[in-house]
Every structure is written in C-alpha cells, then in structure tokens.
Simulated scan of single mutants.
Amino acid sequence: MPYHKNKQQAFQAAQQGVEDVEELYYEIVQDSASYGHQLKHLKNEVNEAYQQIENALEVASEKQRAQLEQFQSDLQSIVNEVNTNP
C-alpha cells in the first residue's frame, strides 16, 4: 500500500485495517481444520494494520492521534487474547 500523504486517507486506512483485523478475529473458529491458516492470516492482517497506524501517526492531528493510539491498544488486546487462548 502506498504511503498516504493525506491525513484523512491515512487515518481511514488505519481504521479500515483495524476493522479488518477485528472482523477476522471474530470469524476464527478454533476447532476448525483451517484454524492454523486463519491464525496466520490474522497475524498478517495485524501486522498490516500496525503499519497503517504507524503511517497515519506520522501525519495525524491530535484527535486522530488519540484514536490511532486506541486502535493500537485494540490490536494489542486481540494479540494478547489469541496468545493466551491457543
């Protein structure tokens, strides 16, 4: 994904990345045969979302910065949940 020059575009990309991670996280069925594949996909989405947040933080307004930091916290919660429930 190209670097976003526009604050709003960068913020929206980060927001969408977090939404994608949350959606994927809630869809994972731990019992399913494809759990490992789903977990790998989730890890990739989390990494991408973190990168989008970092890019957005470079140009964010103060209000956006607070929301982006909340997104980081939300992602960390998902990572912690997945790591504690193998």
Results as ranks from 00 to 15, higher is better:
Y25W: 03
Y25S: 02
Y26T: 14
Y26W: 15
E27N: 15
E27W: 14
E27M: 13
E27S: 14
V29E: 15
Q30S: 15
Q30T: 14
D31K: 05
D31Y: 05
D31C: 04
S32R: 14
S32D: 15
S32K: 14
S32V: 12
A33T: 14
A33D: 15
S34T: 09
S34C: 08
S34Q: 10
S34R: 11
S34K: 10
Y35A: 11
G36D: 15
G36C: 11
G36K: 13
G36P: 12
G36W: 13
H37C: 01
Q38V: 12
Q38L: 13
L39E: 04
L39F: 05
L39G: 01
L39A: 01
K40M: 07
H41T: 10
H41M: 07
H41L: 06
L42S: 14
L42D: 15
L42P: 15
K43R: 09
K43V: 07
K43H: 09
K43L: 07
K43S: 09
N44L: 13
N44S: 14
N44V: 12
E45S: 05
E45D: 06
V46H: 06
V46W: 05
E48S: 01
E48M: 00
E48D: 06
A49Y: 04
A49L: 06
A49C: 05
Y50P: 00
Y50V: 01
Y50I: 04
Q51C: 00
Q51A: 04
Q51T: 03
Q51L: 03
Q52K: 11
Q52W: 10
Q52F: 11
Q52P: 08
I53R: 06
I53L: 09
E54K: 03
E54G: 01
E54P: 00
E54Y: 04
E54M: 02
N55Y: 08
N55P: 10
N55L: 08
N55E: 15
A56C: 09
A56H: 07
A56I: 08
L57V: 01
L57A: 00
E58V: 06
E58C: 04
V59M: 05
V59T: 11
V59P: 05
A60G: 03
A60K: 00
S61A: 05
E62S: 10
E62F: 08
K63E: 02
Q64K: 06
Q64N: 13
R65Y: 06
R65V: 06
R65A: 07
A66K: 13
A66L: 13
A66I: 12
Q67A: 01
Q67E: 00
Q67R: 02
L68D: 14
L68T: 14
L68K: 13
E69G: 02
E69L: 02
E69W: 04
Q70H: 12
Q70K: 11
Q70P: 11
F71P: 01
F71H: 00
Q72Y: 07
Q72R: 09
Q72D: 10
S73I: 10
S73W: 10
D74L: 11
D74N: 14
L75P: 05
L75K: 05
L75S: 04
L75T: 05
L75Q: 03
L75C: 06
Q76S: 04
Q76D: 03
Q76F: 01
S77Q: 10
S77G: 08
I78T: 00
I78R: 00
I78G: 02
V79E: 07
V79W: 07
N80P: 09
N80A: 12
E81W: 11
E81F: 13
E81L: 12
E81M: 12
V82N: 03
V82L: 02
V82H: 00
V82E: 03
N83H: 06
T84Q: 12
T84M: 12
